[in-house]
């Protein structure tokens, strides 16, 4: 599903590279932790995968497509099959939960009844169908992250990228959120989860890769 060949990424000239000669293969339906200390390059790796950044060198294949050679007009198409979740949720505060989750479908030009059905199903899936018309700031952090996950899953993505999604949440909530990723993975979505929460990895052992100074230092499948 995802292949990286000799990928290098430097943000500024003369700066140390954020990723250095990275080679990686992730199969369809995999669940992979990306770990490593702060500044190791975890976010950079994910950004390359949703085309927020371009590598300086190397090739990246996603779902058989070489995204490094792809024109910028194809980026939206790639992102429609990719769910992205952030540590700070990135919800629209002026919109209700329903509108937030409906957003990706509206962007894709889906029909109105199609949207409401799918949004309701997805919010039910994350356990928030009782709060459709609430606004994000009326919810707890854990609930907001669930809304963000619902927004990522509402398009039935092939790939789910999560950048420290539980970084701001306590353990109990983290475990609830993690359940959602597991469920998504069980339905066939390839999940990449960047985290430095070793406790999580210990409890739910999955393939884990570790980065340090932009280099792959560890790749272990239990």
């Amino acid at each position: 599903m995802i292949q990286l060949y000799n990928v290098c990424k430097t943000y500024q000239k003369d700066a140390a590279s954020a990723l250095h000669n990275l080679n990686l293969k992730i199969a369809k339906g995999d669940f992979v932790y990306i770990t490593g200390p702060s500044g190791a390059g975890k976010s950079t790796l994910l950004k390359l995968l949703y085309c927020a950044e371009k590598p300086n060198r190397g090739q990246i294949l996603v779902n058989g497509k070489n995204i490094t050679r792809m024109g910028s007009s194809h980026v939206p198409q790639l992102r429609r099959h990719t769910g992205i979740v952030f540590q700070d949720f990135k919800l629209l505060e002026s919109r209700t939960l329903f509108e937030n989750v409906a957003f990706p479908l509206e962007v894709q030009g889906k029909k109105r009844f199609e949207i409401s059905n799918k949004v309701y199903q997805t919010l039910k899936h994350v356990g928030l169908h009782g709060k459709l018309h609430k606004y994000p700031l009326q919810l707890s952090g854990g609930e907001q992250q669930r809304v963000a996950i619902a927004r990522a899953l509402v398009v039935d993505p092939l790939i789910l990228l999560a950048d420290e999604p539980t970084g701001n949440l306590d353990l109990e909530v983290t475990l609830e959120i993690f359940e959602l990723f597991k469920k998504a993975n069980a339905r066939g979505t390839t999940v990449l989860l960047a985290t430095h929460d070793q406790e999580l990895i210990r409890r739910f052992p999955r393939r884990a890769i570790a980065l340090e100074n932009g280099q792959l230092v560890y790749d272990h499948t239990p």
Binding site: S73, P76, Q77, L78, R79, R80, K90, L92, V107, Q108
Partner: peptide
């Protein structure tokens, strides 16, 4: 700008 960023992240074309 938040809305513009999120639109781009969920796959809106630049014309949209």
């Amino acid at each position: 700008r938040d809305e513009l960023e999120i639109m781009a992240l969920v796959g809106a074309t630049s014309w949209f």
